[in-house]
Design a protein around this nucleic acid. Structure first.
Lengths: 342, 342
DNA sequence: AAGTTGCTGGCAATCGGTTGACAATTTCTA
DNA sequence: TAGAAATTGTCAACCGATTGCCAGCAACTT
């Protein structure tokens, strides 16, 4: 009974309109523009007047209406963050980093994902652009010119991607891969495979490219194996091809793929790391959970998110920040690698 | 060289203002209000005129300015989604579900987390409220009256929580817990523990309450063990207390805690499930990864997200939807439980 | 033929802030 | 003490849509 009464009360409650600067103006006997100045241009007004207005605002519980402000200024106080797949744990830390910087600077982040679909990505990006001050594209699957087009509308920064003329924040995968391959070589591995990610992913290209160069330089044989999706399912599904490739170690596009493959190996009785060593990328949540725990190349995700937002903010301010150096990656050794069977 | 040229070109580009209805009006020789009608009130205008205007809009690449529309209508087309901890994989599916419904209905979701801090949650909620049409509070750590206060400002729906007078979407944990305890009892367990979550979590109360009732009914002894945080660290940290409690099975507040405890057991040589059975809640990403794989009580996360948003939308429309039934949970048996040592 | 009705489209006010220009008042300078 | 300079607050236009009201016109009634 009480419950339903309360329900009616709350639902029926005609929510009173929030106070505006006009209310404050009336209460303090000044004009609305004066209120606006008191709140936004400290020092522009007489100190007493400003005090009086601020007090009144506080008393009324005034909150600025972002929409109303956005109209004349064109600034919404919102940033868009678009990732390729929200269910990839790799984005946790990145989002956290981005969020921290944003809230420090009083910005709000709108978070969306494109579910690995370029078409959906473009549509979402365009939709977001109408209501944000700038866009952060993480691991975009769009083509260069599409990104450039978007960038001509509103400030835009890419993460994990390089596009001509577009400000970017990227990691340097070289150190991590170098350490990983070094270890493999020392452990006697001579034939390795790279289990690929999406072709549209720039990051995938980087990882393959670097692994390739280093392997060649060190006289290890390396092959690229396709996978259908950068997910655990995709990794599991590639098991047959990996097995057929007759390699002793696999570098997988990311930890999801690596975990999928790892599990499939176990289910098929293929000993990891006894007969096959597996290395992933990202060091996502859960990489340390399986037995054997997954070795991986850790990306500086939080830093990528932070820098990405910071870069976007200076871009919005029209600032001329030079490109910063790529953020280093790091190999994380766990149990999924061992010496190659001779 | 090319790169820096391009950089200058794009950065220096004075981005042209996007087209407005005034541009369309000028181009087609009608008044702006007519353009507005053509675009929003199909049928209100002469079919030919409408066609002409729509074509012109398409040609100019017109996109409505949500801010400008929000001012007179008061509708922003945005919904706020506030979770307690963005790094909890349990929210994946929930967010995905919410996002799907939102984008189906043309709404944008603003996603934020409160990092388990009630103070931050309140502040974030208030900030969001100024720019959204409604708020979805998932696993809120606020007190009832705080939620009621928020609800008096803008439409609000809670998920995983019940507050008097506030529309809610919740799961029914009973079936899952029942099955789990049934299994434990059949396996000979007589002394079990519940490893608690945050006191401010309503869901924690539910899980404990139900487990308690069922255990008592079935003559199993049950104790509640505190944990400091609903994370893997929190679970690991509780190991000592669990061990000291001399129980043969643990029901943990969520999978994160369960995974933390599981790992700590392994590291301390305590055999799971040989000497201790462990069950979590949520069935998050990674629950199946460890050895032994974690048994858990799965929550209908995607459905919670979907229903939450749908409920919020009818709330915004002022619709009088009655409360739907709670969504059932389901026990997922994996390797982390076994017969109790006699 | 006068009156009704229905369809089209324009006018103008409005949402809640921001900001350049300016007037009124005070303070400073010589 | 007159005149210049600095300070303080108001006016009014503007951002880009939405919408109630109304007028013009054609078709339809009776």
């Amino acid at each position: 009974m009480e419950q339903s009464d309360a329900a009616i009360r709350t639902r029926g409650a005609e929510r009173k309109a929030p106070p505006t600067i006009y209310d404050i103006a009336r209460l303090t006997g000044v004009s609305p523009s004066t209120v606006s100045r008191a709140l936004n241009k400290p020092g522009r007004l007489n100190a007493q007047t400003e005090r009086r207005i601020r007090d009144a605002a506080a008393e009324l519980g005034y909150r600025i209406n972002p929409m109303a402000r956005a109209l004349p200024t064109g600034k919404t106080g919102t940033l868009g963050l678009l990732v390729s797949d929200i269910t990839n744990p790799a984005y946790f830390d990145l989002v956290r980093g981005a969020e921290r910087v944003a809230s420090e600077t009083g910005m709000t982040i709108v978070f969306a994902d494109s579910q690995e679909s370029p078409e959906l990505e473009r549509a979402t990006a365009e939709r977001l652009q109408t209501s944000v001050d700038g866009l952060l594209l993480v691991g975009s699957r769009l083509e260069d010119h599409q990104i450039q087009d978007l960038s001509s509308v509103k400030p835009l920064v890419v993460v994990n991607r390089l596009v001509e003329g577009i400000p970017a924040v990227i990691p340097d995968v070289r150190p991590g891969i170098t350490t990983a391959l070094e270890l493999l070589r020392e452990a006697g591995h001579r034939r390795i495979a790279y289990l690929a990610g999406p072709e549209a992913s720039w990051m995938n290209g980087q990882r393959w490219q670097n692994a390739f160069e280093i392997a060649v330089e060190w006289d290890m044989s390396i092959v690229e194996i396709k996978s259908n999706a950068p997910t655990r399912e995709g990794g599991a599904e590639a098991f047959g091809r990996v097995k057929a490739a007759d390699v002793s170690a696999v570098l997988a596009y990311n930890d999801l793929v690596a975990l999928g493959l790892l599990r499939e190996c176990r289910d098929h009785g293929l000993d990891v790391p006894g007969r096959l060593s597996i290395i992933g990328f990202d060091d996502i949540f859960g990489a340390d959970l399986p037995t054997p725990a997954l070795s991986t190349i850790r990306m500086p995700l939080a830093a990528l998110g932070e820098r990405g937002i910071r870069r976007l903010l200076t871009e919005i301010d029209g600032g001329e920040s030079e490109d910063e150096s790529a953020l280093p990656t790091e190999f994380v050794g766990r149990e999924s690698i061992a010496a190659a069977k001779s």
